[in-house]
Computed example of a mutant assay.
Amino acid sequence: MQPSDLRIALFSGNYNYTRDGANQALNRLVGSMLDLGAAVRVYSPTVPEPAFEPTGDLVSLPSFAIPMKGRGEYRVATGLGAAVKRDLERFAPNILHLSSPDPAAHAALRWAQDRDIPVLASVHTRFETYPRYYGLGFIEPFIERMLKRFYNRCDMLVAPSQSTIDELLAMQMHDRIGTWSRGVDRTTFSPERRDWEWRRSMGLADDDAAIVFLGRLVMEKGLDVFAETIVQLRKRQVPHKVLVIGDGPAREWFASNLPGGIFAGFKTGEALGAALASGDIFFNPSVTEAFGNVTLEAMACALPVVAAGATGSASLVHDGVTGRLVPLQGQSADVVACAEALASYCRDPALRRAHGAAGETRARDYSWAAINRAVADYYITLIAERRALQTREAIAAG
């Protein structure tokens, strides 16, 4: 079987209506599959004015906005509906790819099992950790059980880092998990993108040590730990500036808890690459990410990284070589340890340059073409295994 024989039905909880790291990876995957000659149909909630144009054919799923402060821009796909089922039948996929464990994905899984079609699920984030950031930590065990049941009904999982795979195996989410890593666009993210004039226009002196936050401003990105760490740096009188790149529903909270922070707003493309490369140290306190695209992008820009020693970053950052991995204290990164790691970079430009250069070298290993071809190989393997099983069952039935 060749990639051009693939007919992939991809289900996403957010394919293009709000930009995030997961849907950027999914759109790149679809583009790679189309380049290989595969047929792809994407099913996801949609909105009248999405954040960007989708790659490939997109079919809208029934959905509603999440009724929660700070999450209202996201939608939950409620199911398939008769029209979507008819579209699926016409498309006749030979593999389903589920990227979000929402009600529509559960329905799609049942639809595929009824037709003996193999299913691959990709893990993009630590969904079970989200409730703790909204005062609902008590439901985490329930979500873990739900995820375990959902994922184990799939034929295979893929996750973006070995640290995430190890965690999923330990949680018994599945016993067959492959790697679908992430790539980085080296034309966008490069130390050559550093823009001294832009940096000065933002109030950063040439000799300032600018600590960068990059991402959607939502609490599960570790905004509380970031803000508390900066307070520690100020108490220690460590010279630094803070550059925040991104926007989101928690912007007001972050700004009020990060006095003096420079908020550059939401950026994409070359403007994003220039803003990131114009920083000096990247700080990622999030423990919810399965990979951490922003961490890899910062490394590609030759910024040393201080990150929580959790899934995702633990597989990217080489502690003491490309940055520092900070141990967890309870369910989040240790604030004091974060401050100590950042202080060492703020005070030592030579150390920043050395660890940043090592990170930039490591980032060269992440090629989108090779990474996405591995997913096509997983699809082909699952289809071949299912067809072999069907043949054996037919022979046994006589």
Score class of each variant (00 low, 15 high):
185 D>Y: 00
185 D>M: 00
186 R>P: 14
186 R>D: 11
186 R>H: 15
186 R>L: 15
186 R>V: 13
187 T>Q: 10
187 T>P: 03
187 T>S: 12
187 T>L: 08
187 T>H: 08
188 T>Y: 08
188 T>V: 15
189 F>D: 04
189 F>N: 06
189 F>H: 06
189 F>E: 04
190 S>E: 05
190 S>F: 06
190 S>G: 05
191 P>S: 10
191 P>H: 12
192 E>F: 01
192 E>Q: 08
192 E>G: 06
193 R>V: 08
193 R>S: 12
193 R>N: 13
193 R>H: 13
193 R>A: 14
194 R>F: 00
195 D>Q: 01
195 D>Y: 01
196 W>Y: 00
196 W>A: 01
197 E>R: 14
197 E>T: 14
197 E>P: 05
197 E>W: 11
198 W>H: 10
199 R>N: 04
200 R>H: 14
200 R>C: 10
201 S>Y: 06
201 S>E: 11
201 S>H: 07
202 M>I: 14
202 M>L: 15
202 M>P: 12
202 M>S: 14
203 G>N: 10
203 G>L: 11
203 G>S: 10
203 G>W: 11
203 G>Q: 11
204 L>E: 10
204 L>M: 14
204 L>K: 10
204 L>A: 14
204 L>N: 09
205 A>C: 06
205 A>N: 12
205 A>E: 12
206 D>E: 11
207 D>N: 02
207 D>C: 00
207 D>G: 00
207 D>P: 00
207 D>I: 00
208 D>H: 07
208 D>S: 06
208 D>W: 03
209 A>E: 06
209 A>Y: 06
209 A>C: 14
209 A>P: 12
209 A>N: 07
209 A>D: 05
209 A>M: 07
210 A>R: 03
210 A>E: 02
211 I>G: 07
211 I>F: 09
211 I>H: 09
212 V>A: 05
213 F>W: 12
213 F>P: 05
213 F>L: 09
213 F>I: 05
213 F>H: 11
213 F>R: 06
214 L>Q: 03
214 L>M: 08
214 L>R: 02
215 G>R: 04
215 G>E: 02
215 G>A: 03
215 G>N: 03
216 R>Y: 09
216 R>E: 09
216 R>A: 09
216 R>W: 10
216 R>V: 11
216 R>Q: 11
217 L>K: 09
217 L>D: 05
217 L>I: 13
218 V>R: 08
218 V>L: 05
218 V>W: 06
219 M>W: 10
219 M>S: 13
219 M>K: 14
219 M>Y: 11
219 M>H: 15
220 E>H: 15
220 E>Q: 15
